[in-house]
Write a protein that binds this DNA or RNA. Structure first.
Lengths: 342, 342
DNA sequence: TCGCTCAGTGTAAGCGCTTACATATAAAAT
DNA sequence: ATTTTATATGTAAGCGCTTACACTGAGCGA
């Protein structure tokens, strides 16, 4: 009896077209290995039945999913949006599908998501940053699932990476800030625990300070999760300290926008009364007024290259080639000379 | 010979623990149907081997994936982010995984994504808006995959929906605008083709105008995709027309932010020279200055309720219960009285 | 003591595909 | 005409799980 009520299967199509299931499968996967007339007949059967191949069955038989998994810390703000969009476009062009999950910056959640994606048969993985439980790397090795890191470049890391040096970028930004004449510098950093981007950005700051003979220990720094509200709150706290900073460096644009908002609410003029800088150069950085001085990250290029590389790792079973991309300081209105020097 | 190189399978675990595969499967899925001692032995084998069940195999055998698919028009901006986050949290709490794709507002892409998600075994689907090719509904019926619509409420639609009346919300906003004394009203709408939210928001505007005896035909309206740049460009065009509007209503906050940015760049003061309103009340609306007058949508509530409902549809095989949520006008600084009346 | 019940476990049949291999047929080479 | 070779299709063996059903033996009442 033909399969009528449920979704049609390969078998149904084969019967309808009067061929074997192998031929139908070939029509779908390697059409040039089937003669025109047969293929036509099969395709008509496929259309009339409204057949869609069952993904799970296909995966089981072929051991390939043409799926790449990506786990990003957050989807709530746009930090990873543009890069991921480019990543997905490039994957699509190469016949792969992207599966995205977010970990909310929580290592345990990330671990679970990795297992989930691997269990779902991801052929390869994109992860953000290098800092995670080594157990995860062993797991990936064992499962033979290649993984690539983005948003952070590190040559000696366990996994290959397509990214940039967060440390150098921050250092360059701080040097610009110092060149503007600032001496009372404060920072609103993201949570550094388990986040090498945040760690490196902080390190870049101390690098620059040390190089210029500043006292790094006197640095006023607040660590807080990457959310606008937190940026605002941290800014308020910094401005109420005894030595008000003349510039507040933020761990990313989201924190910076929060700080900026708070400055305006407190009646402070930016940059006349206080300068604020960000990091990432997301769309938001250009929308706020004054626009944010920030570090431009080549999001789209990074996403596209990461897609190429992860596909290469999957298809060629290669170890993966790391690449360091260039960032660029974007000087915009939120950074000016310190108040005293005006 | 035991399976050594590749990922361990149920069989490997069964052998290691000295039980049958059925017992191992039961330990994982219905632990209380296995006696303590056996379960312990099996779990140890699972841990030492680092076993993770193969998802595809599980799906094939069980015909359930505990996966819900969602297709949203875009991930590039935050319009759907908060609602989707809540949706996913609620799903997670109920033991389901969320798979997200974006269609870039393109009906053909959405169609393809729906097929992909169904092929991947999504137990249920979340779609945005009601306006799509009826063929899709037939396909979903045939595949017996329940689907729910969000971000738009329509009682007589083909699919149940958890949303709000875009029309009523816009109408309410326009009435406030008129109450402020505005008479020269213009609109920057999103692309209405295939987007019932955009259509309904426009309809809400004409509703209000007609009710107040305005000439709807004289309305100056520009239709453009939902992107900041486009909002800016459209605003420029509107302000260079012979009858400059005193207020520009935007199809969503993204367009409104673009318009606002452009106004500032043109040296116009908002709202002294021109008022601007948005729709959605995304985070951005409160960040820009002046903050946007907009329609607040209960994103999180909508996401959470949609999750509950779609799970109910999957598990109870029910038809699904629609619900209309309340929106609220948020009056913020971007709306003021028209220039002449100041 | 003897069934009887029932909890705990094993056996094995698929789920819907892909693909190695076998087979059939036609074209080319001898 | 016969053999060789290439091409098109069919046959059937899994892929790693779940679960209906069969089996076993302990505990129970009669």
């Amino acid at each position: 009896m033909p399969n009528t009520s449920a979704a049609p299967t390969l078998d149904d199509v084969a019967k309808k077209a009067g061929v074997s299931t192998a031929t139908v499968s070939r029509c779908l996967n390697t059409p040039d290995r089937v003669v025109e007339a047969t293929r036509k007949r099969v395709m008509i059967a496929v259309d009339t039945l409204g057949y869609t191949p069952n993904f799970a069955a296909r995966v089981m038989a072929a051991k390939r999913t043409f799926t790449i998994g990506a786990i990003i810390p957050t989807m709530e703000n746009a930090i990873f949006a543009r890069g991921l969009q480019a990543f997905q476009e490039e994957l699509h062009a190469r016949g792969y599908t992207l599966l995205v999950s977010s970990s909310a910056y929580k290592p345990e959640v990330e671990k679970e998501q990795i297992r989930t994606l691997v269990a779902r048969g991801a052929d390869g993985l994109l992860l953000i940053g290098h800092d995670r439980d080594p157990e995860i790397y062993e797991y990936l090795d064992r499962q033979k699932v290649p993984a690539l890191v983005a948003w952070s470049y590190q040559s000696d890391a366990r996994l290959p990476s397509i990214g940039f040096s967060n440390r150098d970028a921050m250092r360059a930004l701080v040097e610009k800030v110092i060149a503007h004449g600032h001496e009372r510098i404060a920072m609103i950093s993201g949570v550094r625990q388990g986040n090498d981007r945040a760690q490196q950005r902080f390190a870049g700051l101390t690098d620059a300070l040390t190089a210029r003979g500043f006292d790094g220990d006197a640095l006023n720094i607040i660590e807080t999760p990457y959310e606008i509200e937190n940026g605002a709150e941290a800014f308020k706290k910094l401005m109420s300290s005894s030595t008000k900073p003349s510039v507040v460096l933020c761990g990313n644009d989201v924190l910076a926008v929060g700080a900026l908002r708070q400055a305006i609410d407190m009646g402070l003029r930016v940059p006349q009364d206080v300068s604020i800088t960000g990091f990432d150069d997301i769309e938001l950085a250009r929308i706020v007024s004054p626009a944010l001085t920030t570090v431009h990250v080549p999001h789209r290029e990074m996403g596209r290259k990461a897609a190429c590389e992860v596909v290469a790792m999957v298809e060629k079973e290669s170890a993966g080639q790391s690449e360091s991309l260039q960032t660029e300081i974007k000087l915009r209105a939120s950074l000016g000379p310190p108040p005293a020097k005006r």
